[in-house]
Design a protein around this nucleic acid. Structure first.
Lengths: 146, 146
DNA sequence: TCCATGTAGACAAGTTGCTTGTCCATGTAG
DNA sequence: CTACATGGACAAGCAACTTGTCTACATGGA
């Protein structure tokens, strides 16, 4: 019954730890001017074909908030704005080499953060865990803040 | 290999959805002046024996931030400050009836948010999932923001 | 082709939840 | 009882987000 409550608390606690550890490791790798929220932006931009408005929807924030975030990432050299091939109003967002480097650092940090859990559960149960969670796969915006 | 990345993304996405749905439901129940961060405070205060400093550590924020949050909850009638029996500096935090009502509403909302996932996986696998996550049980502060 | 409506993005101002800095009263260890 | 630590409050500042408004361009219908 109250497993539902336990489950909620566990998921929230795990995600908090994940974010915290990934951010700390990415900072240690030299990307000290990046915050966790930027990671969610990188994820969308690296996927390709993203405009500022797309990013806003992905992050679940207003267009203005996304525009400010993009402006910051451009200023810091992680992102460039290119003209959109079919829409003169829009600008396509792309990661720079530095942006890709930060993305790789975050991926690696995620692997390292998960590694001890993987070991704790053993490979077989970890695979089941991933499979279970995948079946609950959510769609829609990823909300980096609450 | 990259299951670690998948796992991270899934946990983050799930927790985002959870927070979002619980908050929406709690608002619909009439607690429109509460934000998700308050839930983490309620969790610690309902546990008992909490001072503002305890709360700050639990939430992973500064004492001043916790004090402001407590002040807001007191003003809105969810929390009262009582003198501490053994420390004249400190004040014990307690939930009011309204605070308990909000806590119950959040618990119920969590159950409802998890219910479809529980059904999707089936009771047996859901139990395994909870068991696995419990083994990864984190300690330390719950960080409601990043 | 022209017009009405919708959308991408920028500029500006305001809100808010958090921070740092400082202070006092009380507790605690030597 | 002296030195230092801790709980909490007051004040000011900051940073990420919001709402509101505007221009340029896109799109669909008459």
């Amino acid at each position: 019954m109250d497993d539902a409550l336990t489950f909620s608390a566990l998921v929230l606690a795990l995600s908090g730890r994940l974010v915290q550890e990934i951010h700390a490791q990415v900072s240690r790798q030299g990307f000290e001017d990046l915050r966790p929220a930027h990671g969610f932006a990188f994820a969308r931009i690296s996927f390709g074909g993203a405009t500022t408005a797309d990013l806003a929807e992905h992050l679940g924030v207003t267009k203005q908030a996304a525009a400010q975030l993009v402006e910051e990432l451009v200023r810091k050299g992680y992102v460039v704005r290119r003209p959109h091939p079919r829409d003169a109003r829009a600008r396509l967002l792309e990661l720079t080499d530095e942006g890709w480097a930060a993305t790789r650092a975050a991926d690696q940090a995620a692997r390292e953060a998960v590694a001890p859990w993987r070991e704790e559960l053993g490979e077989a149960r970890f695979q089941e865990l991933v499979a279970d969670l995948t079946r609950l796969a959510p769609q829609g915006p990823i909300r980096p803040a609450w």
